[in-house]
Design a protein around this nucleic acid. Structure first.
Lengths: 360, 360
DNA sequence: CGGCGCGCTGCAAACGTGTGCATAATCACA
DNA sequence: TGTGATTATGCACACGTTTGCAGCGCGCCG
């Protein structure tokens, strides 16, 4: 009889299980929830579990969410999934959340404040239990909203000065240091810096790292050799590197804020008749897929993007389990990957005459 | 008083709006739903809308979903987000769905049947209104389940023989034809084919396309020059291309089933002392990001992945709006992108002696 | 033997919406 | 003015689950 009803209607509900097991729906709820199983007699719990198994009962997350105001869902805000870096981060987040039984709800923001806001609202409405924000803006309303509403937030690839929010990022400071030391070790003394946008956290922190690293190596940073780009794109990299070359050609190496910017440097150098790495060494940042295939293969700093996402998920789970652990800010170690775009510095004189040949 | 309640408790509910507007919650529901607004007096509707605006009312999708068994959510099954092709497809899906007010729920399956199944179950439990499956297996249980339960499904990057499911894919047949014609036009007559796995739709369809295209060009396909790979990876490409070279070196061009396989060919050719494109031309498929940066820049067939996703989303919306339109199978036009990895065929004699020089 | 505590389960009220049905109000028309 | 049609709104229940509270049976102890 009961099975008949099941075969007729949709998926089995708590009431169906209760009918088969001969108990009250409330008891079924308690028996099936590991949290509250202790409250119910072992023998009846067994009976309930069997009935549920037999009917193929699957709890309805919607109904549960309505009652509990929780959804086992985490909102993930990411600039652009088509960017392989963020794809890796998101993949790490997904795999990390799965361990805790949570599901990510992903939205692309294109670094647009308005889209970010509507995605945030939509996700809040869907009762997400927290947010992982991989969006890179340094200033952020999320912070304000967090302290106001107490919603759980974890930042990835970005942190806030106040230490108020848990965050996990790559150690840009260390990464840039490795790169600059590598260049210094090759004899480079005049090192240019093609920095990313200073409104994005990564652009800013790598710039700071560059200043410190140069000092640590006993090198001077010539303001003429530092240029800021607006976006992390090849085109912008080529443009800014062109400005650099037009202004002052005395540098023998470029530290780029990003692999894409580094790629733009390739183009600009080629356009100005300079060879990489023979005339100018270039170092990127991130170790994107396929940069080992470029011409020349790019020396760069590897950032563990997948692990970034996975540990961010871990921090979120930790926060969800409760007992308010103090917000932690984790740094993940980068790794210098030396390939073909860096070489020993040429003697200053040689290079200047060489470049004069082509420019006049 | 009413506003007081709002400031105390959480987000405003239908009842709150009703209290402020001085009407029954049911009326508010009707007034706010564009579908049913016609049922309510224009003046009161206005009052309700104002009240909702004032209170900042946001409908609760969870409660709505519980009542309607719909979630405005579409399950998206994708092999791996870190693959830039699928990232583009997913991005297209997201943007396409947004137009209809739907949100994607994304899961990576790694082409693993078991993970696919659990993701499908989990999404069904969450009451997704449909599935977009970008997973590439040719045989699929989804088909069976679809006809059984009547759940809405759209395939992308894959279709089924029976025409029973709406699908949108790139026109592999046409794409391969363009590529083979290009090679034939360069004088190549012995063209090898490094095919993808025949258990995946794209691998299979491109293989079929290759056979037809060769015939159309009046060229013979030598079974010795066709080799099948198990996965779409560089390593596998290198391995299989190595087998090809060991077996028969008479070919002057390779049609690869994939850019990654083509990349593997680069490695194998180099290892065997052959130059691309001087000795052997290589054509890829997909036009992944950065293949224009490879050494040499890869000639390949561009597939509009973003549009693939976007139109798949469109098909899904169409299906959701109802009135059962017949399932449509759309083909999107590919485009041949000629770069540096293809060149006129060398005279057979020249190349044989050249390769003999290095191999002996 | 009565009362108390304890282990277990039933009861029912939510959570926020949507919607069929009833009903009140308005209107048209003879 | 009465009747039927139309329009607009109220009412109440349902969706499936969780959970505080009450109650029941039973054993223990005084």
């Amino acid at each position: 009889m009961a099975t008949r009803r099941v075969s007729l209607a949709g998926p089995a509900t708590l009431r169906d299980v209760a009918r088969v097991a001969g108990v009250h729906p409330g008891t079924v709820s308690r028996a099936l929830n590991p949290q509250t199983r202790g409250l119910v007699n072992e023998r009846t719990a067994r009976r309930v579990l069997d009935a549920a198994q037999e009917l193929g009962y699957r709890p309805n997350p919607i109904a549960r969410g309505l009652r509990t105001n929780r959804s086992n869902t985490i909102g993930v805000l990411v600039p652009d999934l088509m960017n392989p870096l963020f794809a890796a981060v998101v993949r790490g987040i997904e795999d990390g959340l799965r361990e805790g039984g949570y599901t990510p709800l992903i939205a692309n923001t294109d670094n647009d404040a308005e889209r970010e806001r509507v995605a945030y609202e939509a996700m809040s409405a869907r009762q997400v239990d927290g947010f992982i924000a991989a969006t890179a803006r340094r200033d952020h309303w999320l912070l304000a909203d967090q302290v106001r509403t107490g919603v759980k937030v974890v930042l990835v690839n970005r942190r806030v000065d106040s230490d108020a929010l848990p965050a996990v990022t790559g150690d840009d400071h260390e990464g840039i240091r490795l790169a600059v030391e590598h260049l210094a070790g090759l004899g480079h003394r005049r090192i240019a810096h093609l920095a990313g946008s200073q409104t994005l956290y990564t652009g800013w922190s790598r710039h700071m790292g560059f200043l410190d690293a140069m000092k640590a190596c006993g090198l001077e940073v010539d303001p003429d050799l530092v240029v800021f780009s607006d976006t992390f794109t090849e085109r912008e990299g080529e443009r800014r590197c062109g400005e650099l070359l037009a202004r002052d050609r005395s540098f023998t190496a470029i530290m780029a804020g990003n692999d894409l910017l580094a790629l733009g440097c390739y183009d600009a150098l080629e356009r100005h008749g300079l060879q990489c790495p023979d005339d100018v060494s270039v170092v990127g940042y991130n170790d994107m897929p396929f940069v080992d295939r470029f011409r020349p293969p790019l020396t760069t700093v590897r950032v563990p993007h997948y692990e970034l996402g996975a540990t961010a998920a871990g921090l979120m789970l930790e926060q969800l389990r409760g007992t308010d652990p103090p917000p932690r800010q984790l740094l993940l170690a980068p790794e210098l990957v030396i390939r073909g775009s860096t070489a020993p510095a040429v003697a200053q004189a040689d290079r200047n005459t060489a470049s004069l040949d082509t420019s006049h």
